[in-house]
Design a protein around this nucleic acid. Structure first.
Length: 901
RNA sequence: GGGCGCAUAGCUCAGCGGUAGAGCACUCGCCUUACAAGCGAGGGGUCACUGGUUCGAACCCAGUUGCGCCCACCA
C-alpha cells in the first residue's frame, strides 16, 4: 500500500479542551479491529446476550444454522451465510424478540468418512484394518478436533448464536429423533426395503441418492453390435459394451414392423453364446438408433424395469468395485478395461457393424469423489416420497412457507413435484445405523428408541447407516428436543427464517419440508412447517465473477480477511453483495473499502466526542434546531424506514448500500461539516442543540448498522453513549408483529431537506469553480453573495461561506469572476487574475449541457402527442426544465461573452 | 433433451416505462483544525443485436447472437 511520504503525524487533540455531555473514553485516530473483536465477543457471551429463553412473553424469532460439515473448516460461503443470519437475528434481538440462533454441526457421513479414511491411508491403513468400532471411534476424535476449529471461526465472525443450545447431528438426542421418525415412517409404510438399481460409487463403495450424482457431458463411444445369427439378426447400440455380458433380452417397440416377426423368439448373444429372448416393450423408442435395445436388468435402471415387466432374469456381471465377475476372458477386468476388451473381441468376431461413433453423453459422477457412478442392483432402504412431497409442495403453494426470491420456488416445485423415491441406506460406518434387526428366521424388526432390541443367536442389526441428509432433514425440530414436547420446541417451532444457499435447496431445504410437515403434523397445517420463510442466497465468487475453486487458486479464507481487515469489514463486503438469490463477487480491494467504512464511522464518533456530543436526551424542540439539524433528522427518519423495509425483504445489499451512503455521504461529508458552524459559533443554545442532534443521530446510526457491523458499532456506541451494549439496545426502526415498542421517529422536514439540498448544489458549484481555477483548498476567497434572500437559501450565508471557503468582501474588493447556481450569484475576488481558459472551458461545458437539454426537452414538447397524452405532471416538469435550461444557456452565453479575451 | 436466468462505465453489479447509478479502478488538486484507511473536483456508457408496442423503452413483447445455471433413465 502506498503511503504519502509527506504525511505528517499530528499530535492528538487534547481531550481536556473538550466539553463532553457524557462520560466517555477517548478514541484513538484509527480503528484497530483485531484488538476489539475477541474482547467484545467474549464479553457478549459472558453477558448472556445470545441466550434465548424457553419461557418468555416476547414473541419468538428463531433460526437454525445450516449445520456445517464437521469436516474441514468454514469457507467464505459460510461467512456469507452467517453474516446474513446474524444480521437478521441481531435486528430482531434489538427489536425485543426472544431470539434464538441455534448453532451446530453435521456429521456429514460420507464426506467425513472419506477424510478420515484418507488420514488412515497415510499410515497405510484402511478402515477394515481398524474394524468398525475402532474406526468410528477414530472419526469421533477427528470430529472433536475439526469441530472445535469451526466453533472458533464462528466466534471470530461474530455469530450471535446461543452456545447453550449447540447441537450435533450424532448427539444422543438427535439420534433418538432419527430412530423415532424412521420407525414411524416404517410403520406408515413410507420406508421400505427393496431390491433396486441404485446409483453406486465403486470407490466409496456405497449407494448414493439421485442428487448425490452429478452429470457431466463426457466423451464416449456408441458401438453398434449385431446380435443373433442368419435370419434372426438385430443390431443394438451401446455406450457400455461390457454390460452386454449381462444382457438377458433384446427389446423392441411392440408396433415396430421391422422386428414383429422376431418378438418372442430367442437369439444368440455374441461372445457368451447364451440365447436371449426378444421382447416387445413400449418404453423402446422405435425412432432412436435401430429401434432395438439390449436389456441388462442388473446394470441399468431402464433395463431393470423392462426386465421386471417381462420377468427376465437379472444377471450380475460386475462386483461392487466395478470389476467384471462374469466367467470368461473378461473376468477380473475393471469396467473401463473390460469395455475396450469387449469391443475388440466383438470386432474379431465381426460383430461390430458400421463405425464406432464418438458420442458425447451425460455421465453420472459421485458428487463426493468424482468417480463414474455405476448403476447397481442391490437391496437398499428407501423413503416413499410421493405423499410427503405432495405436502411439501402444497405448503409453498398455499403460502405457509415463502421462498425469497420468489423465482426460486419454480425450481423447488420442479423437484418436489417429480421426485423419485429416496435411497437412504449407505454402506458406510460413520452415521446413524439403520434401526432394523434381522432374525434367524427371516424376521425384520424396526426398533424405536424406547423399544427392546431383539437379542439372541442369529439376530443382527442392519449394517448400513442412513444418508447424512436424513438427519439433516430433521434439524429444525430434532435440535429443539423432538420427539419430546419440550418448552424449546413449543417456543421456537416453526422456526422463523431459513437462510441458506440455493445450492442446497433440494438436498436440504426440500427434505426439511418433507420431514417437518410429517413429524409435526399434529401441530396443524400452519404450525407444522419447519420455517415460515426461506431466504436463499448465492455462491461467493471472485472479483471477475468466477467460481472459487482450489484448482483455480482463487479461494478466500475468511479468517485471513478477518485477521487483516476485521470481521466487520469481511461481513460488510459479503452483505453488500448479497442480493436475494444472487451470487456475490468479492475481492480484497473491496474488503479494504469496507474496512475504510468502519474507520469512517470510527472517526465520525471521534469527532462527536471531541465536540461534546450529547446522547440520551432525545431531540430538542424544533425551534431550537438549525436547518442542518432538521435536515439530518429528517433524512435519518427516511433512511430508517427504508432499512426496515429492505430487511423484511432480505435485501441485504440494499440495506448495506443505504446505510453506507447515508453515513458517509450525508452524515460525514455534509452534516458534520455543517455542524461545525453551529458548534464553533457564538450561539450557545444552537451549539447545544446541535450537540444533542449529533449525539442522537450517531447513536441511532450505530444501532442501525450494528446488525451488519457488530464489533465496531459496539465499541463506538458504548464509547459514545456510555450505555451497556448496543447488542441489547433498542432498534430505532419500526417494530412488527407485536414486539415491544419502537423508539419515536425523528420528525420529517421537507423544507429543511430542500434547503440543504440546494445548499449542497450551490457549494459544489463553487468548489468546482475553485478546482478549475486551481485555487488552493485552504485559501479564503473574498466573495459577495447576491440574490440569496430570494431563494430557499435565505438563511444560509454563513454556511455557504464556511463550506466554500469564502470570506467577507473587504475594502478594495474587486470581483474577477462569478458563479451562478440555485438563483444565487456569487462574485469572487480571486486576487490572482482569472484563468480565463479554464473558466471558458468550464462555462462552455455547462453551456453544451444546457443546449443538449434544450434540444432534447424542446423536441419532446414540440411533439403534440406527448403534450396531449403524457400525464400533465410530466409535461409540466418538462416545461420547467426547458425554461430553466434556456435561462441557464442565456446566462452562460452572456458570461462567456463577458470573459476577457 | 427439458426448464430457468443473464447480457448496463475498465471490473463486479443496482436500476426494470418518463433527465443513465454505486463500489472498486482511473485523472487532477490538496498534510482543510474527526478520518491520507482521508478531503475536494473530474473523466468514462449508441444500457448485446434486430424488429415491434407506446407520446416516450435500458426497462414491456418477439426474434437473433453470446454466456451461465438447474434438471434429465433414450440405449
Amino acid at each position: 500500500m502506498l503511503v504519502s511520504a509527506r504525511r505528517v503525524v499530528r499530535a492528538p487533540l487534547d481531550s481536556a479542551d473538550v466539553t463532553s455531555g457524557t462520560k466517555t473514553t477517548q478514541l484513538p485516530a484509527q480503528y484497530s479491529p483485531g484488538e476489539v473483536e475477541t474482547r467484545r465477543y467474549e464479553g457478549w457471551v459472558e453477558a448472556g446476550y445470545f441466550q434465548a429463553e424457553a419461557e418468555s412473553d416476547a414473541p419468538p424469532f428463531s433460526v437454525v444454522i445450516p449445520p456445517p460439515n464437521v469436516t474441514g473448516s468454514l469457507h467464505i460461503g459460510h461467512a456469507l451465510d452467517h453474516t446474513l443470519i446474524d444480521a437478521l437475528i441481531r435486528r430482531r434481538r434489538m427489536q425485543g424478540y426472544n431470539t434464538l440462533w441455534l448453532p451446530g454441526m453435521d456429521h456429514a457421513g460420507i464426506a467425513t468418512q472419506n477424510v478420515v479414511e484418507r488420514e488412515l491411508a497415510k499410515d497405510g491403513l484402511s478402515r477394515h484394518d481398524l474394524g468398525r468400532e475402532a474406526f468410528v471411534e477414530r472419526v469421533w476424535q477427528w470430529k472433536a478436533e475439526s469441530g472445535g476449529k469451526i466453533l472458533g471461526q464462528m466466534r471470530r465472525l461474530g455469530d450471535s448464536v446461543d452456545w447453550s443450545r449447540e447441537r450435533f447431528t450424532m448427539d444422543a438426542g438427535l439420534s433418538r429423533a432419527v430412530q423415532t421418525i424412521f420407525k414411524r415412517l416404517y410403520e406408515d409404510g413410507l420406508i421400505y426395503r427393496a431390491q433396486r438399481i441404485i446409483n453406486w460409487c465403486p470407490r466409496c463403495l456405497t449407494a448414493l441418492s439421485d442428487i448425490e450424482v452429478e452429470h457431466t457431458e463426457d466423451d464416449g463411444e456408441l458401438v453398434s453390435i449385431r446380435y443373433g445369427d442368419g435370419e434372426d439378426q438385430i443390431v443394438v447400440a451401446t455406450t457400455r459394451a461390457e454390460t452386454m455380458l449381462g444382457d438377458t433380452a433384446v427389446a423392441v417397440h411392440p408396433d415396430d414392423p421391422r422386428y414383429a416377426r422376431l418378438v418372442g423368439r430367442e437369439i444368440k448373444l455374441p461372445l457368451t453364446g447364451r440365447s436371449i429372448p426378444v421382447v416387445a416393450d413400449p418404453h423402446v423408442d422405435p425412432d432412436f438408433g435401430t429401434g432395438a435395445v439390449k436389456v441388462t436388468p442388473a446394470h441399468d435402471p431402464d433395463d431393470f424395469e423392462i426386465g421386471r415387466r417381462h420377468d427376465l432374469p437379472s444377471l450380475v456381471v460386475m462386483d461392487e468395485r466395478g470389476v467384471i465377475t462374469a466367467p470368461g476372458p473378461f473376468e477380473g477386468l475393471d469396467r473401463f478395461e473390460a469395455r475396450p476388451a469387449v469391443v475388440a473381441a466383438l470386432r474379431a468376431d465381426s460383430r461390430i457393424v458400421a463405425e464406432r461413433r464418438p458420442y458425447v453423453h451425460a455421465v453420472g459422477h459421485c458428487s463426493r469423489c468424482g468417480t463414474t457412478v455405476e448403476p447397481r442392483l442391490s437391496l437398499q432402504w428407501f423413503v416413499k416420497v410421493e405423499p410427503l412431497a405432495k405436502a411439501a409442495g402444497d405448503a409453498v403453494r398455499d403460502g405457509r412457507v415463502k421462498i425469497y426470491p420468489q423465482e426460486m420456488s419454480a425450481r423447488y416445485f420442479d423437484w418436489v413435484d417429480d421426485m423419485h423415491d429416496w435411497c437412504i441406506s449407505r454402506q458406510l460406518w460413520w452415521g446413524h445405523r439403520i434401526p432394523v434387526w434381522y432374525g434367524p428366521d427371516g424376521q425384520v424388526v424396526c426398533v424405536g428408541p424406547d423399544d427392546e432390541v431383539p437379542a439372541g443367536p442369529g439376530w443382527e442389526q442392519d449394517s448400513d447407516v442412513l444418508d447424512t441428509w436424513f438427519s439433516s432433514a430433521l434439524w429444525p425440530f430434532s435440535t429443539l428436543g423432538w420427539p419430546d414436547d419440550t418448552p424449546d420446541l413449543r417456543a421456537f417451532y416453526p422456526t422463523s427464517v431459513l437462510v441458506t444457499g440455493y445450492d442446497i435447496l433440494f438436498f436440504w431445504v426440500a427434505r426439511m419440508m418433507l420431514f417437518g410437515l410429517y413429524a409435526m403434523a399434529a401441530a396443524g397445517p400452519d404450525e407444522s412447517v419447519p420455517f415460515r420463510q426461506v431466504a436463499l442466497h448465492g455462491l461467493v465468487r471472485d472479483q471477475y465473477g468466477k467460481k472459487m475453486s482450489k484448482t483455480r487458486g482463487n479461494t478466500v479464507d475468511p479468517l485471513d480477511w478477518i485477521d487483516r481487515f476485521g470481521a466487520d469489514a469481511t461481513r460488510f463486503t459479503l452483505a453488500r453483495g448479497a442480493t436475494p438469490g444472487g451470487d456475490v463477487a468479492v475481492s480484497e480491494d473491496w474488503v479494504a473499502g469496507a474496512r475504510n467504512f468502519c474507520n469512517k464511522l470510527w472517526n465520525a464518533v471521534r469527532f462527536a466526542q471531541l465536540n461534546g456530543a450529547i446522547t440520551s436526551r432525545g431531540v430538542p424542540p424544533a425551534d431550537q434546531l438549525t436547518a442542518p439539524d432538521r435536515w439530518v433528522l429528517s433524512r435519518l427518519r427516511a433512511v430508517t424506514q427504508e432499512v426496515d423495509a429492505l430487511f423484511e425483504q432480505f435485501e441485504f445489499a440494499k440495506v448495506s448500500d443505504a446505510l453506507y451512503h447515508f453515513a458517509w455521504d450525508e452524515v460525514c461529508d455534509w452534516y458534520l461539516e455543517l455542524a461545525k458552524a453551529a458548534l464553533y459559533g457564538p450561539d450557545e443554545a444552537a451549539a447545544n442543540a446541535t450537540r444533542q442532534v449529533l449525539g442522537e443521530v450517531l447513536d441511532r446510526l450505530l444501532r442501525l448498522i450494528h446488525p451488519l457491523l457488530p464489533f465496531v458499532t459496539e465499541e463506538l456506541w458504548t464509547a459514545l453513549t456510555g450505555g451497556e451494549s448496543v447488542v441489547i439496545a433498542r432498534w430505532p426502526g419500526q417494530v412488527t408483529d407485536g414486539a415491544p415498542g419502537a423508539l419515536p421517529q425523528p420528525p420529517a422536514d421537507p423544507a429543511a431537506e430542500a434547503e440543504i439540498e440546494a445548499l449542497m448544489r450551490l457549494v459544489t458549484e463553487v468548489r468546482r469553480f475553485r478546482s478549475d481555477q486551481g485555487l488552493r483548498p485552504g485559501q479564503q476567497v473574498p466573495a459577495r453573495l447576491a440574490g440569496l434572500d430570494a431563494t430557499v437559501l435565505a438563511d444560509h450565508d454563513g454556511r455557504i461561506r464556511t463550506l466554500s471557503r469564502l470570506s467577507e468582501p473587504g475594502p478594495g474588493f474587486a470581483p474577477t469572476a462569478s458563479v451562478h447556481a440555485e438563483g444565487v450569484t456569487i462574485e469572487l475576488d480571486t486576487a490572482a487574475s482569472l484563468d480565463v481558459a479554464a473558466e471558458r472551458k468550464r462555462l462552455a461545458k455547462d453551456l453544451a449541457a444546457a443546449q443538449a437539454d434544450i434540444e432534447a426537452v424542446g423536441r419532446k414538447l414540440a411533439n403534440a402527442s406527448f403534450v396531449e397524452r403524457a400525464p400533465a405532471e410530466i409535461v409540466a416538469k418538462n416545461r420547467e426544465r426547458l425554461a430553466a435550461a434556456q435561462a441557464e444557456a442565456a446566462q452562460l452565453t452572456e458570461r462567456i461573452a463577458a470573459l476577457p479575451t
